[in-house]
Simulated assay, not measured.
Amino acid sequence: MQLFIEQLINGWALGSLYALFGIGFGLVFATLGILNAAHGTYASWAAIIGYYAVERFGVPFPIAILAGVVGGGLLAMAVDQIGFQPLRSRKAGMLGALITSIAFWIILDSLAGFATEHQSLAFPAASYPSKMFAIGPLRIPQMQVIIIASLLICTAGIYLLIQKTRLGAAMRAVGWNEVAAGLGGVNARVVILLTAFLAGATSGLAGVLGGIATSNVSFTLGEGLMLKGFAAVVVGGYDDVRGTAIAGIMLGIIEVFVAQYISTEFRDGFTYILLLVFLIARPRGLFGSTSFMRA
């Protein structure tokens, strides 16, 4: 029983990383209509920025996370304004944006490889919380608690932002129709910039925390998050952060249990079987029919 609970917590923490990334990815798709293949590089670069903030400048753990989060957000804004804004002004459509995002993915991925010298780096052990919480016979790493708490806070915060604030209403309006939102007094470009920053920052947080938890800061870090985050968005509902959070946790738990009780070779296979099932049977995801982004 102890092993089962420990693996459940491991899966919850892993799934929280997928969900954090998926929330940012889903925000861009729901609000801007962009399937951004470069989104994974925001997580990679955030982890790299956080790592060098610690390694080169010796900043404390919270500042390193903040540096990575801000770096991911600013990178997302830059990609949007350099790559996607000209396409929006020309009404290029989703295909043009997808091709552009692939180009940015290749460029940013190559630069990330150069920044890490194509090696897997690791945060110094003394630079982040590494204690264990004891609950009876259970031993829970402090970083897992931080990851789970980060997802809960981000999910609640973004949900309330979109549901209860003027900015959230403007995001929903732009998601429905950018031109109509502009006619209604919404500054669509500002909303798009803020949405891009929020999406990049959320994915950046997943990158930094994932880089610490897995001791893997590399240019490939975002690729794994991208695949699993996309699955969380599809299963949960591309425009509902609640569904993405639940689906991400579910995927993480499934992965860990499959690896523990069946085989590590099939852990990814089960994830994509579930993805295919939802694409066929319920393409709008768990919460798609009552999507709050389109409320």
Rank of each mutant, 00 (worst) to 15 (best):
T165D: 08
A180D: 07
L198G: 12
A232D: 08
L138H: 06
F287G: 01
F197K: 08
L193F: 06
V179N: 10
A103D: 07
F29D: 00
R282E: 01
I212F: 10
D268F: 04
M171W: 12
W105E: 14
S89W: 04
A38D: 13
Q2G: 13
G96I: 02
T100K: 02
N36P: 09
T155W: 08
D109V: 00
R189V: 00
L251H: 06
M132F: 15
L276N: 06
T271E: 03
A199H: 07
L279G: 09
A76Y: 00
N36D: 14
A19E: 07
S203P: 06
I158W: 01
Q119C: 02
Y51G: 11
L151M: 07
F104T: 01
S130H: 14
G229S: 12
G224L: 08
F61Y: 11
M143A: 07
S215W: 07
G243T: 02
D80C: 00
I106S: 12
V145H: 02
P60R: 02
I82K: 03
P86C: 10
G26M: 04
L227T: 11
A97S: 15
F123S: 01
L98M: 15
G182K: 03
N216P: 03
L32V: 04
W105D: 13
F266C: 00
L274F: 06
G182D: 05
Q85Y: 13
S16L: 12
L161N: 02
I107D: 01
G288Q: 05
K131H: 05
F270C: 03
Q163Y: 06
E223A: 14
G200C: 12
A46Y: 11
L227Q: 09
P141Q: 08
G11K: 05
V256F: 05
D80K: 00
I23R: 03
V79P: 01
T155N: 05
I280Y: 14
R242P: 00
L35H: 05
Y18V: 10
F197Y: 14
I162R: 03
G68L: 00
S101P: 10
I254D: 02
A67H: 03
G236K: 06
